[in-house]
Nucleic acid binder design. Structure first.
Lengths: 173, 173
DNA sequence: AAATCCGATTGCATTTTGCAATCAGTTGCA
DNA sequence: TGCAACTGATTGCAAAATGCAATCGGATTT
């Protein structure tokens, strides 16, 4: 970990970690998209990250303690990236960020439905989400029953996509 | 406002607004430091922002609707920068960001006491803070009585500085 | 045996950043 | 009146980061 910082202010130090255009996008795709492999992050990125930037940020996030890398036992070339508790605890920030963006920025409906559901769910849902992620990434004990928070958000997303597709049939462009 | 975005995802759009190393620092200094003028932001910045970067970011934040600029009636050359509601509503995000940084990053005590107090105060304190800022920057009706949230945070900061100075007398380096 | 997939790396042009010097107009003070 | 200090910036330039396409050697699938 690098030790020459601009200041010891927590907001500044946070910006030094993910104050760029890609780090938080990668974490978002891992947290909300469930992506664990390099290619999943590369090809699944709607913003179109370049492979060299992705490689650099994954390396950087590992050095910062936000991610770990492990071999995939099923494929000798695959690496599995996991979130650390440090990254999992960003969930409330991502929830607030999504809520803020939904109010003030030109979001699209299908890409903001997750933020809306997460905002409505509030801190209890965020806690559940973090527990799910701890189970998935850190091997913590799993939930008793019921769908994961990610599955709930994904179902909301798909419902919007389906509804918009129906609308397109009724009102063709 | 620019309209070519990487995606309509609220987190991505938020990053397009302040996903850099300086924009949020400037807003932090305006919100927590009460700074309103170019020189205050330039010279008061502990991170040492350069004047061209500051000028660029102020312009950008105005274009994005986060800040407004007005003439200072007392000085023909001075400009007063004000936060818009869009920027004021970042307070909960800054509170979470500070809380996260305090846990995971090498913060200094005097620069993180504000984050600690804001975290302890919770959403009611954040709301009060936002009301204070609306009064100060938007001309909204003021509080009934009592110190502003910024004054409370500042007092906490100064108490830490004073205590550390005493410690330095007892235990000189 | 060939095609595809794996996590990257390389080369290169463009853009952004960091830093110091400087600018023209305004103000306060002697 | 003169002059230093201060106002919000702007300019020039080197260094770093970014974006993009092509490519790499090894592993897996077909």
């Amino acid at each position: 970990m690098n030790t020459d910082h601009r200041s010891g202010c927590p907001i500044n130090l946070s910006l030094e970690v993910f104050g760029d255009r890609w780090s938080l996008i990668i974490l978002r795709d891992m947290i909300f998209g469930g992506r664990r492999h390099f290619r999943e992050l590369l090809n699944g990125s709607i913003e179109g990250i370049a492979s060299n930037i992705l490689a650099d940020r994954l390396k950087r996030l590992m050095e910062l303690g936000m991610l770990t890398k492990a071999d995939d036992p099923s494929h000798k070339q695959k690496a599995i990236y996991s979130l650390t508790e440090m990254a999992i605890s960003l969930v409330p920030i991502l929830a607030h960020l999504g809520a803020w963006g939904r109010v003030w920025l030109p979001v699209t409906e299908e890409l903001s439905i997750r933020a809306e559901l997460l905002e409505k769910g509030g801190p209890p849902m965020w806690e559940q989400f973090m527990d799910d992620l701890r189970h998935e990434h850190l091997g913590a004990p799993g939930r008793a029953s019921g769908p994961t928070v990610r599955a709930i958000l994904q179902a909301g997303y798909e419902a919007v996509v389906a509804r918009k597709a129906l609308g397109a049939v009724r009102d063709p462009a």
